[in-house]
Design a protein around this nucleic acid. Structure first.
Lengths: 141, 141
DNA sequence: AAAACTGTTATGCTTATAATTACAGATGAG
DNA sequence: CTCATCTGTAATTATAAGCATAACAGTTTT
């Protein structure tokens, strides 16, 4: 499981809490605690979905789209983490005549896909606004 | 995400489909397509939960417990894969004064835990018997 | 024209996952 | 009793995935 989903949530939350809803990759990278190039990669994908717009050149950076408060974690999961439930290594597929070995991969694939759907449905109920509120409520408990 | 959950499902399905519900780690490893030592590690954990019993010595191996048809994928997930939704690398935690950076880790942890609960609830509705039926129905479609 | 950004690719580093080896301990067969 | 066979477990090596870093072309503002 890579962390791009995590990074996306972080970036969008950060932007939504900034007064002008804007920051460049250097500033965001410091907050996320990673390299600017990694931030740019994730935010590039978010841009293609219309969640942010970018401004190149001096004083540029990433600007949060106004409606992005309604983006759900499900949207972000599907974009950045779908398929990560299924491990890269899977059992079976050998050269035996064993029924299980021959068919386990299709069965497990269905199991992982079903799990992922359940996960996505859960995340569909959490919006970016919920997350920003969570962050804020941590400061004044 | 490692594959021990996958291996556990495979092993138990295999045992349940064998006439005498028994096999040793060599035979299972061939079906799973991995090293016997890895099978033993997983099945050792399943033994501690009472899902199988082991018989050492000549002609020994693993024997499926009679009630194991009712074991759910949720049980196996909790035993072998819990916590794997949260990646090892997580954002934030830097030395900034940024609110997001300071609190994102607690928030993301709750998000991952919530996701995992949703996943477990889903898997709680799938029994080993369901999986064995799935495997069998692949052979005669 | 110069400086400050993003977008993207290539490369190296680190960590996680799987394979392999090895051996002690247990059990049944002869 | 002794040997062969099996599990349990730990240590080591190999492979793959994830992250960091560097580099540079393209774009925009000043």
């Amino acid at each position: 499981m890579n962390s791009e989903f995590n990074i996306a949530v972080h970036c969008l939350t950060l932007l939504s809490l900034k007064k002008d809803h804007m920051a460049n990759s250097d500033e965001i990278a410091k907050s996320v605690c990673t390299h600017p190039a990694r931030v740019r990669k994730v935010l590039g994908l978010l841009r293609k979905q219309g969640y942010v717009t970018t401004k190149e050149g001096v004083g540029g950076g990433y600007l949060l789209n106004a409606d992005s408060a309604n983006v759900t974690l499900g949207d972000l999961y599907r974009l950045l983490a779908r398929g990560s439930l299924q491990p890269s290594w899977c059992s079976g597929g050998g050269e035996t005549t064993c029924v299980v070995s021959e068919h386990i991969q299709e069965v497990m694939e269905r199991i992982y896909n079903g799990g992922e759907l359940a996960l996505e449905r859960h995340y569909d109920n959490i919006t970016l606004l919920d997350v920003t509120r969570d962050i804020q409520s941590e400061t004044k408990p």
